[in-house]
Amino acid sequence: MVYHFEFGALIPYIPVILHGVLITVELTLFGTVLGIIVSILCAWARSGGPLWLRVPVGTYVELIRNTPFIIQLFFIFFGLPSVGVHLNAIDASILAMVINLGAYGTEIVRAGITATPRGQREAGASLGLSGPQIFRHIVLVPALSRIWPALSGQVVIVMLGSAVCSQISVQELTYAASFIQSRSFRAFEAYFVVTALYLILALLLRQILRLGGKRIFPGGKAR
């Protein structure tokens, strides 16, 4: 038997696909921006913050890095309502992505902070800057520029991981694919197109992060 490809069968579903792309982009945008903020705060807490913060942050990081993303997502979406926290599917997905990226990002950002030459902090201290001022004005930006490629990679992983959110009925790209193939029985075509779209999105995202890095971190590579 020979399978006849018919990509034309997908044409009626273009709005569904585009909507899926939009939701995936939305999840990624919020997940990334908030996740990076969480990463920076937790990395600060783990590397230079008060002792009483280091243990809870360390626990958070290890808990998330050693459990599956889908379980974290299910816990937030299906588990939390039992204790009175009701989130819609999109909010639950964004929260799960922020928590997930935050944990991996913490360790990445922390590596950048740890690699700061001691002389940089000493120069700041000898100018009369306080600890938090040194972190914000002297340590943070070179630390981020050092680990930007690694962090960018993690952001792409989180974007691709958002496919899992279709499991709680978020109508993102993967959801669009299953929806289309269940209606049209054109599984090959549907998944082929969606795969290509993920690839394009990932490559675009990498490019945006690369160019963004050049904008945010002028002055060349930090030592």
Partner: peptide
């Protein structure tokens, strides 16, 4: 910190801030 504002220090390795 107040005292450090009154005494400057210059280091062997310059220690300029590379991102500024």
């Amino acid at each position: 910190r107040l005292l450090r504002q009154k005494i400057g220090m210059i280091f062997q390795q310059f220690n300029l801030f590379p991102h500024l």
